[in-house]
């Protein structure tokens, strides 16, 4: 923290620690990937711009970031309501600035899962990104990775089992 305040270039160390948490939070509130990316980007840019002022606030860095994120999400809902008023759609969830403990736990859980994906064996990781992020079919992934569809399904299973085991371990 001190390093980042005295040297903005050290901000990237904080980024490594906080990226998954912020993204997990934003992604629970907005369902659209492009918006989630835009807001996550906005949060870190705002945080970088405001680091010198941070020391005045007596809250942990993660909470401060999530507060910035909650504000950015609220702004986004206001903008969206203004640009695309759609009375037939269900209302977006209100951006509640006070996070409940249960929500914090859910965010931490999801952030941890995202981090663990990065530690999977390379080919399992690849399958996870292809399947869940790119939303490719088994057949397409099989072609891209030069493997049989059955092998991709096995890798998919191993990856999810691995993640499940590690998450269970992490939570005792």
């Amino acid at each position: 923290m001190e390093a980042a305040q005295s040297d903005p270039a050290k901000f990237d160390a904080l980024y490594e620690l906080q990226f998954e948490r912020v993204y997990a939070f934003v992604a629970t509130r907005v369902r659209n990937r492009a918006t989630a990316e835009q807001l996550t980007s906005e949060v870190f840019h705002r945080a970088l711009a405001n680091l010198p002022g941070y020391e005045w606030r007596g809250v942990p860095f993660a909470a401060w970031l999530l507060r910035i994120a909650a504000n950015a999400i609220a702004d986004q809902f206001k903008r969206a309501a203004r640009e695309f008023p759609a009375p037939d759609d269900p209302p977006e969830p209100a951006a509640d600035l006070d996070l409940q403990a249960s929500e914090i736990r859910a965010i931490e859980h999801r952030a941890q899962l995202f981090r663990l994906v990065g530690q999977l064996p390379e080919v399992q990781k690849q399958v996870v990104y292809e399947r869940f992020v790119e939303q490719r079919s088994i057949r397409e992934i099989a072609q891209r990775l030069g493997k049989a569809p059955g092998a991709i399904k096995q890798l998919q299973l191993r990856a999810v089992q691995n993640l499940r085991a590690q998450m269970a371990g992490g939570h005792g």
Binding site: P8, A9, H45, H109, R110, V160, L163
Partner: peptide
């Protein structure tokens, strides 16, 4: 239990986005 994990993986951030944002922030900081 596996499906609960899979459900959360739908929100997994793109690796490229994570890397691009980081480099953008580094440049901004510099």
């Amino acid at each position: 239990a596996l499906m609960r994990v899979a459900q959360e993986l739908r929100e997994l951030p793109r690796e490229e986005f994570r890397a691009t944002l980081k480099s953008d922030l580094q440049r901004r900081a510099i």
